[in-house]
Design a binder for these strands. Sequence first.
DNA 1: CTGAAAGCGCTTACAG
DNA 2: CTGAAAGCGCTTACAG
Lengths: 332, 332
Amino acid sequence: MKRTSIKDIAQAVGVSAATVSIVLTGKAKNGRVSKEMVEKIKVVAKEMNYQPNRLARSLQSGQSQTIGLLIADILNPFFANLAFHIQEEMRKAGYAVIIMNTDEDSQQMEEMIELMQCRQVDGFIIVPAESGEQSIQQLVDHYVPLVLIDRYYPNVQTSNVLIDNFDASYQATQYLIQQGCRNIALFIYDTRLPHMEGRVNGYMEAMKENKLYDDHFIKKISYKNITEDICKELQSVAEKKELIDGIVFGTNTIAVIALKQLFKLKVKVPEDVRVVCFDKSEVFDFLPVPIPYIQQPIQSMARMASRLLLEQLEDTESRNGSTYRLPAELIS
Amino acid sequence: MKRTSIKDIAQAVGVSAATVSIVLTGKAKNGRVSKEMVEKIKVVAKEMNYQPNRLARSLQSGQSQTIGLLIADILNPFFANLAFHIQEEMRKAGYAVIIMNTDEDSQQMEEMIELMQCRQVDGFIIVPAESGEQSIQQLVDHYVPLVLIDRYYPNVQTSNVLIDNFDASYQATQYLIQQGCRNIALFIYDTRLPHMEGRVNGYMEAMKENKLYDDHFIKKISYKNITEDICKELQSVAEKKELIDGIVFGTNTIAVIALKQLFKLKVKVPEDVRVVCFDKSEVFDFLPVPIPYIQQPIQSMARMASRLLLEQLEDTESRNGSTYRLPAELIS
DNA sequence: CTGAAAGCGCTTACAG
DNA sequence: CTGAAAGCGCTTACAG
């Protein structure tokens, strides 16, 4: 029942616990311990099926080899994928990942950060929720290794991994314009988070350049009432109350709900209205035409965030606070 | 930088660390510590922003308040959902969850179990991979709190949370028969895992009862070559080499890939072929008719598994080894 | 009512 | 080449 400890081995071999520890952690270089002893200890350790207690090691070393990952919405495939890849990257580097879901709630985010700190996580990768500046600023103030991903707070100096939201959205809008659309709406979350603002600005820039901009084209969707808000907006599109011939959907989730609704309302894509989405979705394969979309490089984002965190973890000097903007590509 | 420890508080207040510990863990009942002292310690702890080091507590208590969750395929929404709900349930009970993805590989499953044991997880919830009996048997032999979910090994005595696969599949097949189908295929993973066998048997039973059974109707799909295998089978359906008027798709993933392929091949559902799927998918909303499906009660499964694990965690006597089969409902 | 001591399992100087 | 000791931060008997 009880797991064998370093003491048990020490006793069995007839040496001190310290010697066992030195051997088993591979610190027995340059003849610190005789070859025969090293062999013997290793053999006995295997025989007794020794597995080190990482907790004890962590307490001693101050490193838990565990990081916390806070995701805003784990049921969104984009984030689920991100979590999956981060987990893989960190596992390769010897870290375990504790994932929690903040559900876009800064209050929960704060609680979860505290929870994870009690568990002595060595660092964080966080998809921050709106209005959570304070908790993140605290981490920064305490030099906690930290990378924000997908979003960031402009007033908090952190390392960030983002896509170029402005450019992505600009591309998406330009594409619709090139396809002949003139009345192009943007469906976007009603949030102050700057990654969404980047998407708004990219859209606006493209519209303005082409003298097509009008602010009533920007449809703010609330995260809480997402389905209702989208349906309401699309209803008026379907009823031609408002002339819309193109839509940029600002997120994955918005796009899928909207496409579903358009399908129900028998609004034809792209005949009646052209669209561009963020992120690929499985549902695209069930539409008669390919749906153009902005491809976020999920795996690169995960890899980059992991790399940045590992750098901070390994080199306590490297509090760079640099922002990486990965390009997102329009697939059409 | 350094976090404040119980010692720091003890020093600040002028008492021993033991007293602080007793107060902060709420063990200061029945006048063990004077009221004033309790107050003072609490105030100072708050002032110094004390957060207990759970690692140290865990080392002492032997309980990490962390469980390991091993999922077979985290990118499958069914499992992602399951993971999400388990996380929530366990969090409510004060446990953190470390999730890892075995990718249906028993070798990886074994490694990950070991990894998690080094981290002193208190128990496991596992979606076991094929041919992983040994590692699970070892956990059982060592009385490690453990619940298997979605699948189980008939020869290993564990607590299991399953759906009634036989009945689900029986219902699905009966439904197609009632709809007038006579040549009904089953698309199912080629695996010895008994939850899949349950689905095969339920199908067979329904077919045999109606004298429709023929073993060439059972289409084995390999997990590795899932897309190719499905396409091949559907190709022959489309070309009417084989007369098939109904298909039961044995899993979520198979269903979505197959529906996509049917759509491409312009095979009409349900005119050319009727189908029943396992689990709802977002893509159903893009088909002109509702798709009947077996609804697995994901949240109940998560809740039940968490409950069973918590029982084992709290009461070391309760190694019941009971199997819970939750009903799955046909939604049509 | 409170404190000193031992211990959870490990690692890291230090002494011999 | 090897061992004794101290300590990571906490908790739990035990003594007073």
